[in-house]
Each structure stands twice: as structure tokens, then as C-alpha cells.
Amino acid sequence: MEVKKPKIKSMKYEDFKDNEYIEDLLAQLNASGVNVVVGKADQLLNWSRSNSLWPFCFGTSCCAIEFMCLGAARYDMARFGAEVARNSPRQADYIMCQGTITYRMAPVLKRLYEQMAEPKYVIACGACTVSGGPFKNSYCVVKGVDEIIPVDVYLPGCPPRPEAMFYALMQLQRKIKVSRFLGGANRKEKLTYDPEPCLE
């Protein structure tokens, strides 16, 4: 079954940037096609996952305030169904990493990410999380969270405006819509870590 281009309500496909990336994913998916039943079930799952993104509140600095504005009355994240902000990582779907990550915070962020349940996504929000931003030269700032955890969407800005955060959210939705869950083509490599935790 052919996977179609992802559609987002009230925004045209052409208006998005980074369409090549989505087309790349599409080509990969279509090359390893699956039958209609699995494909349709997959579409349903992707639709539900992309429309029910519950954020994990993880704000370290300035961007967190803009994230609050995103949830507040004018911008209202609830329109996307993303207002169910969970404080427990186990129940959240994506972590919007807002603000600088320092050396002291890095192990904590990694652990929080590991505590989240699959499927989990990461938006690196703000210049600090993308690259270290204005604090790149500091002795204790992580130069981009992708050194610690895998990032799905990079969102520059210092801090990004709420509109930009919505754009990032929609990009994440598009990315989820061209993933495959049941066919299992996306995960080629085997899990490398030992699932049995150590007792120490």
C-alpha cells in the first residue's frame, strides 16, 4: 500500500520547510511496502499518535515561559489535543526540551528520557538545546541535547515564539504520520542495550 504525503489541517504541504526530509521517509516507506490491512492499521495508529501528543513538562529556563504562553489562553495548545501536560515521564509522549542543559543536568535528562514509554519523541526547543546557543563557550553547558538523547525536531530561537513552537509541533505530527509501527521497517537495528536492569 502506498503511503501518502502527510496532511496537516489548515496548513498546506508546500508551506512547510524541510519537505525533502519527509519525502525521504516516504520513499523509504514506499520501497518496503506492506499490504493494505497492515497499512491501514498503521495509518490509524499514526493518526492517533500524531493527534494525541501529550507533552512532558521539562523546562529549565526562558523557553519554559514561552511554553507556558503556548498553553495559555491566546495560543492554546489544547486545540491540538496537547494540553494534557504530564509531570510523570511515564505517561508523556514527547519531551519538549526547553532551555539550556548543563553538565549537571545532563544525566537527569537522559534518565528522564529513558523513563518515558515508547513511542517517545523529542523536540529540541531553543538555541541552547539545539547547539548550546549563547552559552556554547561555557565550561559546563552541553552543546546540543543531541549529544545525550535523539532529537526529532530542532526548533531554533532564543526563545522561539509560540507560533514557532506550533510549527515544531506540526512538523513532529508530520514526522509521526510517515512512520511505520506494524510493518516494522523503520527499526532496522536490533536493540543494543540489555533489557535486564542491574540491581545496583
Binding site: 529549565t60 529556563s61 526562558c62 515561559i65 532551555g99 539550556t100 548543563t102 549537571r104 543536568m105 537527569v108 549563547p134 552559552f135 563557550n137 561555557s138 565550561y139 559546563c140 553547558v141
Partner: peptide, 28 residues
């Protein structure tokens, strides 16, 4: 210290007008 970014040290390697930028990122 979980968000200690070493602003004071970084200021020592910038010119005076450049240091202004960091003041806004302390108490935003």
C-alpha cells in the same frame, strides 16, 4: 546548579557591549 551556565566566566572573554546579552538570560 542544575542550570549553572558559567555566565560570569563567559563575560570575561567578551567585550563590554557583548556581555549585555547574558543579563537577560538570568532572570528572564
Amino acid at each position: 546548579g542544575y542550570i549553572h551556565r558559567g555566565i560570569e566566566k563567559m563575560c570575561e572573554s567578551l567585550t563590554w557591549p557583548q556581555t549585555l546579552l547574558y543579563t537577560e538570560r538570568m532572570d528572564y
